[in-house]
Nucleic acid binder design. Structure first.
Lengths: 195, 195
DNA sequence: GTATATTTTGGGCAACTGTCCAAGTCGATT
DNA sequence: AATCGACTTGGACAGTTGCCCAAAATATAC
């Protein structure tokens, strides 16, 4: 009983991939048992053999994908020598997210679904916390002197927002955003009053 | 044939309201004919008497709501005497969007659905264009000397992103973002190299 | 009153949904 | 060879879906 298990793992992985692709194509709520089964090239019953429910599959697949994506971005960002080149790299990546690619769609769909699925919500929040923490330490190591936490929160939100708007407006000039974005992270403490 | 029409308009409006509320509660794809009919207090058949399809109702309702919201925000923003107080007002508004309110949910849901509904996509893009244009003229009238278009794009995207992240992380300290956000809009031209 | 236009009703339809399950396949173990 | 366990199959089930429509209700015009 070894090759059987191996085959099972492969099927499970194919279900993951199919789920990720379909969430982007038809939306979180539009993914059906038979759809994902057909896409994975298996019989409909297989889905409920490997997962308790379709929602369960969706949660597992989307968190796995999102986790890998966040980790990858954080990792690549950490390799950037200074803040300015880091931002340039981020903007460059961003221009690759046209909004039609599975990555950006899945991220936003997962965000939304998390509002109605507490467990998914918790996982996603942990991921964003991790990502923010990476950005904070990266900013500090590169000489950012201001409120690094606030900057990280703002940067993470801005990136997500840009992915969203870029999908609506593919003609958006991403490169032109470098100026104000740099200014945002050049803030060095003398902020303003706050309540 | 006048009071009849009036009653029809009232029903139509109740269907709009029900649709807006339900998009936030169960998601764009989760709204069903019978759901919206029950919420509006009418028989299921009414929906398809007033609208060609549920999707049609959803598109009409969400664009009407989003248009009113964008218009309201742009109008209130235009009343702010300077950029800093404008940002403060925006952040204050933002802290009201906990992510559980219908407005923020509907905005994000509509964003997403637009990826699969070309007409909705076009309408939404026009709205954001209008909003950006308002921000641009507001920035210029308040003495912004840099690339006002880029600043407006970035600001609009950042606001949407913050709504998204605020919904995931209600404990987010919105006021702390004022510093870097102001710095972003304080950019006055001497940006940097760009590809 | 009758006639006409508009809106509303409640049920009917075929298609699809998630989930389950008895039967079947296939490789490993004995 | 027979047996065992993990995996897969394809169909069955009850429930829900969007959409449609003949009939009833309501309001205006004559």
């Amino acid at each position: 009983m070894e090759k059987s298990v191996e085959r099972g793992r492969a099927t499970r992985q194919r279900l993951f991939d199919a789920a990720v692709a379909l969430i982007g194509e038809v939306g979180w709520g539009g993914v059906t048992t038979r759809m994902v089964a057909e896409r994975a090239g298996v019989a409909p019953g297989v889905v409920h053999y490997h997962f308790a429910s379709v929602t369960d599959l969706l949660v597992e697949a989307s968190t796995a994908f999102a986790g890998a994506l966040f980790g990858e971005v954080a990792h690549r960002l950490a390799e950037q020598p200074d803040i300015e080149s880091g931002l340039d790299w981020l903007l460059g990546e961003l221009s690759g997210y046209t909004g039609t690619d599975p990555a950006s769609l899945l991220i936003v769909e997962t965000h939304l679904a998390s509002g109605r699925l507490p467990e998914l919500r918790a996982r996603l929040r942990d991921m964003i916390d991790d990502f923010r923490a990476c950005v904070v330490s990266w900013l500090r190591a590169r000489g950012h002197t201001g409120d690094a936490e606030a900057a990280a929160v703002l940067l993470a939100a801005t990136l997500d927002g840009l992915v969203l708007h870029h999908s609506l407006d593919p003609a958006m000039d991403v490169a032109a955003l470098a100026g104000p974005l740099r200014a945002m992270l050049r803030a060095d403490g003398h902020a303003g009053s706050e309540g």
